[in-house]
């Protein structure tokens, strides 16, 4: 047990250090890219709750991300509400949409559910275009730029970074609360064996819908943050492939890890760009190979890989100290 908590501590220490150091080391543009990665990370945290702990596949997370982004944009550009103040509303509205998306999950599981939710993701951009009256159609919607309050002397990029990290912190807190105690146990129980969970009194309908709502709320929050960071959204940002990319980010990072969600978000934003930087014409090939390689090496995602590696090191040092102690005792 102490081994596990120690490796968790090391992991969070590394993570906190990285979160503080990143804005100091990165130029403005790259920092904005990191902010986008954080917005994706929030959506991934939601998907981890639903897919990693709830065992439900959802290929509509990108569409729900888009719903959140549009709620923020509409509330800001049409009603003049401060962008940050729109975020709770984006999360709530998307949670409600997510409940509807989750309805098929009560009857369908696994691959069928994947197809149904992907249908939603595929229809979403077109729907945005058709509803041009409120979504702005092809020309999209602008969102007011964020300015740091006068008592915080930081650049706009850094302020965006602080805001998105705070939202990610809230998202992580929400996920932790939702996985706490009986509710989290019931969620895992219905994932591992639905029939036994039911015999134990778990309400499968409620549990699954709740997981869909929670996951969607985080997708909405992430989408709202995304809209604020980019300052402009259009249907092009929420194509069906985004939903697939979020699933990839979730799996690459590690489906049951909060830190993994951040790594997944960074992966989504940076790896395709790096792949094209290596060779413009072979970008997709390199990206694809990178995906295959990661799954070969780290089956449980990058965090799973790091955890295994850390625990091996910790055990080795523990063994060393133990053997040193033993030799000392033998000598005396």
């Amino acid at each position: 047990m102490s081994d596990g908590s120690r490796s968790r501590l090391v992991k969070f220490g590394l993570f906190a250090a990285a979160a503080v150091l990143l804005p100091l080391l990165l130029p403005g543009y790259a920092l904005q890219q990191v902010c986008i990665a954080i917005a994706y990370a929030i959506a991934i945290m939601g998907l981890n709750l639903l897919m990693g702990f709830g065992g439900q596949i959802c290929l509509a997370q990108g569409a729900l991300f888009g719903v959140g982004a549009y709620v923020t944009a509409i509330l800001n550009s049409d009603y003049g509400i401060h962008p940050i103040a729109t975020l709770p509303m984006s999360a709530t509205a998307t949670a409600l949409v997510g409940l509807v998306v989750g309805l098929p999950a009560l009857r369908l599981q696994g691959l069928q559910l994947a197809i149904v939710t992907f249908g939603i993701a595929a229809a979403f951009p077109q729907l945005l275009l058709k509803m041009g009256g409120i979504t702005g159609g092809v020309s999209g919607l602008p969102i007011d730029g964020l300015e740091a309050p006068t008592w915080v002397p930081v650049s706009p990029e850094l302020w965006l970074y602080v805001v998105s990290q705070c939202c990610a912190g809230i998202a992580a807190l929400l996920v932790t609360l939702m996985l706490f105690g009986d509710v989290g146990r019931a969620l895992r129980a219905q994932r591992d064996n639905a029939q036994i969970a039911e015999a134990l009194g778990v309400n499968l309908t409620k549990t699954r819908l709740w997981a869909f709502a929670g996951s969607s709320a985080l997708a909405g929050l992430g989408g709202g943050v995304f809209a604020i960071i980019t300052g402009f959204i259009s249907p092009e940002s929420f194509l069906a492939i985004l939903s697939i990319n979020i699933v990839i980010g979730s799996i690459v990072g590690g489906v049951t890890s909060v830190v993994g969600a951040f790594l997944g978000g960074l992966f989504m934003v940076f790896v395709p760009t790096w792949a094209s930087d290596i060779n413009l014409s072979l970008g997709n090939l390199i990206y694809g190979l990178a995906l295959i390689l990661i799954m070969m090496v780290a089956r449980n995602g990058v965090t799973g890989f790091i955890e295994k590696w850390l625990s091996t090191i910790l055990r080795r040092t523990a063994d060393n100290t133990a053997s040193v102690k033993e030799t000392r005792e033998e000598l005396t």
């Binding site: 895992r188 129980a189 591992d192 064996n193 134990l200 309400n203």
Partner: peptide, 24 residues
């Protein structure tokens, strides 16, 4: 009908789900 990936305590606590749980 046990949950092999959970701890013994977690398994037994699931028995109390109908009394303590389900409050989302």
């Amino acid at each position: 009908g046990i949950y092999a990936s959970m701890t013994v305590l977690e398994n037994v606590m699931l028995g109390g789900h109908h009394q303590f749980g389900g409050r989302f």
